[in-house]
Amino acid sequence: MSPLASIFIREARLAWAGGGGAAGPAAFFLAAITLAPLAIGPAPDLLAAIAAGIMSFAALLSVLQSADRLFGDDHGDGTAELYLLSGVTPVWLVLAKVMGQAAATLWPMPAIGLVGALMYGVPIGPALVGALALLAAIPALALIAGFAGALAAGIRRSGLLIALIATPMMVPVLIFAAGAGRSAFDGDERALANLMLTLAVSLGTTALAPFGIAAALRSRLG
């Protein structure tokens, strides 16, 4: 097995075994979208109109939820040093690591987003577009959370700091992912454009963020 594949699998298994796998983010996501109508009020028109926004917002928050685990533990026990000494290109290594965790923990998000949108009274078509947008947003969200997590690795109570660093960077992907669901619900032809832009942000983040994560990881050692 190539080193990258084994890092990917190690990270996925760690996330699966250590943090309840996909259950943690999924349960948090569910809790957030349950609380939102209780705060906003049960008016069906209003809930259907804001469903796409609430789903993307809740997805963003649940990605942040597990961001401190990814590099925090490795920084604490010296695994990060070994990774950088291993000879595997750091850029590929961190990409495999972030994607490993994302694959293990974030896959239920589009499904819950779809069910949540239906519960908020969105018709099936626009709800599917919203779920697709969440799927397209996952790489960007996971990598940005990974970047903030690498910068703040090993700092005590780093969760709050990671959230503060990551939120401004998540603005574009949040705008486009929520915009796709929103314009699909409004019957606006810009739904497809928003979906494409979400995908574009994810691809751009996949191209750039690993360099940032690798540099951040190195800057925190020695």
């Binding site: 970047f147 910068l151 603005v171 574009p172 915009g179 832009l197 540099a215």
Partner: peptide, 30 residues
Amino acid sequence: QAARTGAILAMAGIINLVIVKFSVDWWSSL
């Protein structure tokens, strides 16, 4: 560490701010 890590974040921030500018323009045009 604070110096090096801060430098990386500040440089990432400038790329981010440019993208934020465009995406927020798109968002408010809706």
